[in-house]
Design a protein around this nucleic acid. Structure first.
Length: 292
DNA sequence: ACCCAGGGTCGTC
DNA sequence: GACGACCCTGGG
């Protein structure tokens, strides 16, 4: 366990607030000095932006530069992607201006699987609290600057939790879903490392849907936020709201005004407009609408 | 005090 | 395919 520092100069499309508060991750917290501290794998990271430079510190065993390149997806050209979306319409333009520093993180699949099962019919403060308590109880402790942090538990570590243990950590009705999913992962009924190799989105989704607690929305979140499948378009209440407000009039049939559109129609619009980076467009729209 | 909604999913009809 | 139930918590 060692402390490391990584300074990356002249970054574009990287704004900690946008990245960590656009709803894709649950383990990052704002510090008094305006930096963010979070847990990535078995490391604690602290990220601060000063002018256009990034100052990243870490405590852990992994090489900080490798961790950051993978997790923050530094190889993807966001300037180029933003340019493509900007010229689609004025809505995209506004939402990108608002969340210009958003990046889609490359999170751990197992952690994303459990986290988004917990997210079902739940609010963000409570989701964060639940994940924090799970990590405190079943994860590894890392001490840094006389503070204690807890990594997200491995499947094996979480298998020690009974349904009642999970219930007492505040999961509510999601307790059995998390318990069963953990059991399936440990038994390798579905092998997560094999899952990551599946290229075809629909085959991948089909596999993910076999886990209890994973429906279409959660499956798409896992694919987008931990597997870099930028073409998927997770539809939640907020996305439904914003897509209806912005685009319901476009599927206006025979002069009739349509005020509610279903998920299939939303996907159709998303694919047609945003194509293979629909997931990125989804994040700009989600963040924009939710912060309004 | 009471009600409602929250990054949905599941079982039932 | 539509509909209600579901644990729990913070905010109105």
């Amino acid at each position: 366990m060692k402390e490391q520092i990584y300074i990356k100069k002249n970054v574009k499309s990287f704004e900690p607030k946008h990245i960590f508060e656009c709803g894709q991750c649950f383990r990052w917290n704002l510090e008094p000095d305006n930096s963010y501290t979070g847990i990535v794998g078995e490391n604690v990271l602290n990220v601060k932006k000063e002018q256009n430079n990034l100052i990243i510190k870490s405590m852990g065993n992994d090489n900080i530069q490798d961790v950051c390149n993978y997790y923050f997806d530094f190889d993807t050209d966001y300037e180029n992607n933003k340019q493509k979306l900007l010229c689609i319409d004025d809505n995209m333009k506004q939402s990108i201006e608002f969340g210009s520093g958003i990046r889609i993180l490359h999170q751990n699949i197992w952690e994303a699987l459990i986290s988004f099962i917990i997210s079902a019919n739940n609010n963000i403060p409570r989701i964060k609290g639940i994940i924090e308590r799970i990590s405190q109880k079943y994860g590894n402790e890392i001490e840094w600057e006389s503070r204690k942090f807890y990594t997200f538990p491995t499947p094996q570590a979480l298998s020690k939790a009974t349904v009642n243990d999970l219930r007492s950590l505040g999961l509510g009705f999601r307790d059995i879903r998390v318990y069963e999913t953990t059991r399936m992962v440990n038994n390798k009924e579905i092998d997560l490392s094999e899952l990551a190799k599946i290229e075809d989105i629909n085959k991948l989704r089909e596999e993910l849907l076999k886990f209890p607690g994973v429906g279409p929305k959660v499956a798409d979140c896992i694919m987008l936020f931990s597997m870099k499948k930028y073409e998927v378009f997770p539809i939640d209440v907020w996305v439904k709201r914003v897509m209806t407000e912005l685009y319901a009039n476009e599927i206006d049939v025979k002069g009739k005004e349509i005020k509610s559109i279903n998920n299939k129609q939303i996907l159709q619009i998303a694919n047609q407009k945003f194509g293979n980076i629909a997931g990125l467009a989804q994040q700009y729209l989600f963040y924009w609408r939710r912060e309004m």
